[in-house]
Nucleic acid binder design. Structure first.
Lengths: 225, 225
DNA sequence: CATTTTTTTAAAAACTGCTTAAAAAAACCG
DNA sequence: CGGTTTTTTTAAGCAGTTTTTAAAAAAATG
């Protein structure tokens, strides 16, 4: 099991991380909200544990944003004593559980395990992905940028979906080849370049801020501007 | 017994789900009205329990819509204290019972079991399906668009009925093959295309706004225009 | 500036869905 | 029953779209 821990107090963070690792739980540890958010997008975590009060971005906004991106990973928020408003706001934002500081480590462990056990509720998943001013409806296969509907062919849609599911991360052609085309070997083709070009024409060409960027030698990544 | 639970407050929802499951009741849990409605169409539930205040679509509209689609599954609505208007509106829409929050879990359980025990025939199912300017009478097998009666053969009727029971959703040929033709394997035929063509000639050809749309590679869906 | 990598363009190939026509099966009816 | 009509299924060709290939042009790197 992998857990993302976002906690700005180094001492508490390290101690939680150590405790979890003793129970065979892999832990990625971020000390501020922005880094935490980026990590949450890329890697497959079973649970995200986040303090509410954080530099960069607080735990509630973080929860709201990752939910907005279609990420349904269970979120457990750590709140200071008696912050009932925070609790409510946290649940509103899409958090799944909370724990009031100070807490016993045993209780945190039990709650994390409970959240991880929860079946990934495929129904509850928001059937859309968002990034910048784009919305992708996974149900109707509609794709919209800045209110304008853009028709994508199935392959274009699949590629764009992969980008949207991995924003702000450099994605190698190798990876696209495997994940979008299901090719396990190099066919010495340039389909990917061609399709990135197709997407750029449809998604970026008529707009000022480009979303699809190239990192020479390494791959492509999604970013605003 | 299977119950569909639609509740946007995660904590309450989870606790109800847990409680019911301890009594050997299977629970599908949706956190918003739209997802709940979609689930209500597909799966065979004994009872639907829905909060009234929901994101996406409120419990009363949800009840009205599923009744409109001919679904007569008993519906129990959860209302906040003293919302008498809601109660009335809920019953009007076709709900079968309500429960005022806060409530004891034991009472909810008893009411669900009571609804599930009720013989199906006591609910007066609306014997028609409607979409846009069409009405399908399931009793007489009449189909009308814009006041004009359209004669459909049995298979055409069955296919159109399936479309009407799943509006605004993309339906794959695979699914049609299973649900309308009862084929569990691919017979490598094009009957479905042929029948969609039949329907289009009868249902869409003489009208400006088309109802039956194709989504390349994915299937068909019903939508106005 | 030479080399490598990426982008662009164009055209071929493959595929999907639509249409039409005819055959097969089922329902109807005197 | 036997013939007729209606409904359902099969088959084949076509039209349009999508995907892939290939090669030239452009851009980036050191």
């Amino acid at each position: 099991m992998r857990v993302l821990l976002i906690e700005d107090e180094p001492k508490l963070g390290r101690s939680i991380k150590k405790g979890l690792e003793e129970h065979q739980i892999e832990v990625d540890f971020a000390e501020n909200g922005l880094v935490g958010k980026r990590l949450s997008q890329s890697n497959g975590y079973s649970v995200i544990v986040s303090d509410i009060i954080l530099p960069g971005m607080n735990g509630i906004d973080l929860t709201r944003q990752i939910r907005h991106e279609g990420n349904r990973t269970p979120v457990l928020l750590l709140t200071a004593l008696g912050q009932t408003d925070d609790k409510v706001a946290g649940f509103d934002a899409g958090a799944d559980d909370y724990l009031t500081k100070p807490f016993e480590f045993r209780e945190l462990l039990v709650r994390i395990q409970a959240l991880a056990r929860r079946p990934v509720d495929t129904y509850q998943a928001l059937p859309e992905l968002r990034f910048a001013d784009t919305v992708m409806d996974l149900q109707t296969h509609e794709f919209v940028r800045a209110g304008r509907k853009i028709a994508l062919t199935p392959k274009e849609f699949a590629l764009m979906e992969y980008f949207l599911r991995n924003p702000l991360r450099v994605i190698s052609k190798q990876e696209i080849s495997e994940k979008v085309w299901n090719l396990d070997f190099d066919t010495g083709t340039n389909v990917i370049e061609v399709y990135v070009n197709f997407l750029r024409k449809k998604v970026d060409k008529d707009f000022d801020t480009k979303l699809i960027h190239t990192q020479f030698k390494n791959g492509y990544f999604l970013r605003e501007g």
